[in-house]
Amino acid sequence: MTSTTGNRSTMSRRTASLPSHGRELNLALLLQHLYAQGPMSRADLSRSSGLTRVTISDLVVELISRGHVIEVGTSSASRPGKPSILLDINRQGLQIIGVDLADSAVMRAAVMDLNGNVLTRVELETTDEKGEAASAQVIELTARAVQAATERIIGIGVGTPGIVTDDGCILTAPNFGWTDLDLRQQVCEHFNLPTHVVNDADGAVMGEHTFGSGSAHMMLVKLGRGVGCGTIVNGTRVRGANAASGELGHVIVGTDQGPECVCGKHGCVETWASIPSIRRALAQRPEGVAEADHHSSVMAQAGERLGIVLAPIVSVLDVQDLVLAGPARYVDDKLLAAVRETISARTNTSQRPNFTVQLSRNPDDIVLRGAAVNVLFNELGVA
C-alpha cells in the first residue's frame, strides 16, 4: 500500500522531502523488518536495512522510548563474543481497536493484537438508526471495546460502508443516512486516540491481502449492508479519482428494472445481492416450493446478478484472485458457483490457469482485520 488515511501525511513512505520525514521513514523501515521477520539484533537490522549501526542504535533508542520496540532476550546463535540482544515489535504491549460497520444486523468491534488476532469481541445490535443516531451507536460500541483493552491502544480502525476519503470523511453512506460525515474526527476527539476510517470493502481486501490468502492482483467483494469491492493491482490498493473505487452497490444490473433501491433507482446490484436483500428474498418462499430449492434459486439469482457486474471488471483488470466475503449463512458455495459460472460465460478470464474465485476463509473478522492493517500502516508504517 502506498497511500495513507487519517491524519497522517499522504506522502509516499518511499520518498522524503524533509529530514524529519526521512527519519520517520527509517523508523518505519525498522518496524517493517521486525514485524515481518520477528526478533532481530541491531546488527541484523543494520544488514537487512542497509543503515549503519550508529544510525540503527539511534533509531532503536527512539523506538524503545515510544514503546513500539522492546528487547526480548539474547540470541542463541553461536558467535564469538557477547551474545546479541534481540529486538522485536512490542507485540504483547500494544493493541488495536477494530470496528466493523458492514453487517446489516449488528455492529462489531474488537480488541486486537498486532498480528490481527481478535482478543476480545463486543457487539451492538442495530435498529436501523440513521444520521446522528447511527453515529452515536458507533461511539457507544467503540467505547465498549476501548474499555475492554488491557494494553496501550495505538489506534482505532473503522471499516464502514460508503465512500470514504483519505482523511476519513464519509462523503455518502446511504444505508446510514450519512453525508459529509467526518467520522474519523468524531471518534478521534471522543477517545483522544489516533483514528483511521476506511471503506469496509477496502478494509476487507487489506485484511485478506495481509492475513489471508490474497495476492498482488486481487479483488475482494464484500456483501453486507450493501455491495462493495476492494481491489489490489500490482500490490497497490486502488482508490480512484474520488475515493469511490469499488462502489458496486448502485450499479444497475440489466434492463428489467428490478426492485427499488434505497438510492431511489431500480435494479441496483445491491437490491439483489446485499445481505438484507438476500434475507428478504429467502423469507418470501412461494407456497409449495421446498426450502432447499428456494434457497438455491435465490442464491443463483443473486450470484448471477453479481457476476454480471464483476465480469467486465475482472477482465479489464486481469484479476488473479476474486474473493467473496460476507456472512457464511448467505455467502455460500451456491452463490460462489453462480458467480463463477456467470463470469465464465461472459469472459475468457476463467480460462486463465491462475484465475481463482473463492470464499474468504475468515469472513466474520475480515473487516476488523483490515481496520487493524490500516492502523498498523498509519501508526507504525507497517505495510
Score class of each variant (00 low, 15 high):
residue 135 S to D: 06
residue 136 A to C: 08
residue 188 C to H: 08
residue 129 E to Y: 08
residue 97 I to N: 04
residue 98 G to V: 01
residue 114 L to M: 02
residue 183 L to Q: 07
residue 116 G to F: 09
residue 124 L to S: 11
residue 107 M to V: 11
residue 204 A to S: 04
residue 166 D to N: 11
residue 100 D to N: 02
residue 87 L to C: 15
residue 138 V to C: 12
residue 174 P to L: 02
residue 157 G to T: 04
residue 147 Q to G: 13
residue 109 A to N: 11
residue 172 T to F: 11
residue 148 A to Y: 00
residue 171 L to H: 05
residue 101 L to H: 04
residue 100 D to L: 11
residue 206 M to E: 15
residue 167 D to T: 11
residue 124 L to Q: 09
residue 122 V to T: 14
residue 157 G to W: 08
residue 157 G to P: 04
residue 92 Q to V: 12
residue 188 C to D: 11
residue 157 G to Y: 05
residue 172 T to Y: 07
residue 130 K to Q: 10
residue 200 D to S: 13
residue 200 D to T: 05
residue 126 T to D: 15
residue 145 A to K: 01
residue 160 T to F: 03
residue 102 A to L: 07
residue 191 F to T: 05
residue 200 D to I: 13
residue 191 F to K: 01
residue 103 D to W: 13
residue 94 L to H: 04
residue 169 C to I: 13
residue 206 M to L: 11
residue 87 L to Q: 13
residue 187 V to R: 01
residue 206 M to A: 14
residue 192 N to H: 12
residue 171 L to T: 14
residue 91 R to S: 12
residue 125 E to N: 13
residue 170 I to L: 14
residue 163 I to W: 04
residue 179 T to K: 11
residue 104 S to L: 02
residue 183 L to I: 11
residue 165 T to V: 00
residue 151 E to R: 03
residue 113 D to S: 04
residue 181 L to R: 02
residue 159 G to F: 04
residue 134 A to R: 04
residue 190 H to M: 07
residue 80 P to W: 08
residue 147 Q to N: 10
residue 165 T to M: 05
